[in-house]
Design a protein around this nucleic acid. Structure first.
Lengths: 138, 138
DNA sequence: CTTGAAGCTCTAGTGACTATAGGGATTATC
DNA sequence: GATAATCCCTATAGTCACTAGAGCTTCAAG
């Protein structure tokens, strides 16, 4: 049986975060010691690793809740799990596209400015004031 | 003189957001009508456009506060403004890199799953459970 | 002069944690 | 067996950039 601190050290998930996951229903309410402290076993460790991995991939709590629910019905078809991952992949791709446009525009703004002149002439400030100076796509 | 609704329509910034920007110190406290309603003029419109543009570029409120403060000292050198924009550009680039790694991993996971088999065999679920199945870089 | 839209303030909610306060439990050492 | 150090507990509030709602007042048109 592991204490919450042991679990934390083994997974790299902070103690308050573990309690938060329990509150959010991602982890089952842990067994308790006589003194009311949480005690965990192997299955909890695996569950937490699953959660951590999914969070690292950017899945949100709700999506993870659904994946956990699915994983407890091994005989259902996996179309739903597939859809959750595929939807998230689309969202990630959209975010990348948006950030790339931002990057382009920021890069152009920054490249025009060498920090060596006055605020009045500063391309950074001027492009923020005057939308015409940038690509103007947003 | 514009009402807050007029300002909202002209800039595309929602009314509560305008009040929020005032509260955050990005917009000066507006003049008021006899009945205590906010009244704006051209300079406020320009300031709000500046803020909106900076937000669209992903700058946070604190950075915008600094840029506004700088823009009110036209004779200072623009190194600080340049640094704010350049720092943000770096942050955007880092985010893009992280998201690209995510995308790669998600794409691999999804590509192994055609939704046609059971949860038990599902690559999506399995790769979340077993870190060894993915690139394992995180 | 009435009506309905628009404005006001204040509070609370979002997501995924993180931090703090004020206690009790456990463990190691003496 | 006492004590100290570390760990754990709950509950609450804070983060960021808004957004939503309640309950009230003001404004502009007919």
């Amino acid at each position: 049986m592991l204490s919450i601190g042991d679990l934390s050290r083994r997974t790299g998930v902070k103690v308050p975060t573990i309690r938060y996951y329990e509150q959010m229903g991602l982890l089952d309410a842990a067994e308790r010691s006589e003194g009311n402290q949480r005690r965990y076993e192997r299955t909890d460790l695996e569950r937490l690793a699953f959660i951590r991995h999914a969070r690292d991939l950017g899945l949100d709590i709700q999506a993870i809740r659904e994946l956990i629910a699915l994983s407890q019905h091994p005989n259902l078809p996996c179309a739903d799990a597939d859809r959750i991952a595929a939807d998230h992949l689309s969202a990630v791709r959209e975010k990348i596209e948006k950030l790339k446009k931002l990057e382009e525009e920021l890069a152009r703004i920054v490249s025009h400015c060498d920090g060596g002149h006055s605020i009045e002439e500063c391309y950074v400030i001027r492009s923020l004031s005057d939308h015409g100076l940038c690509g103007g796509e947003h």
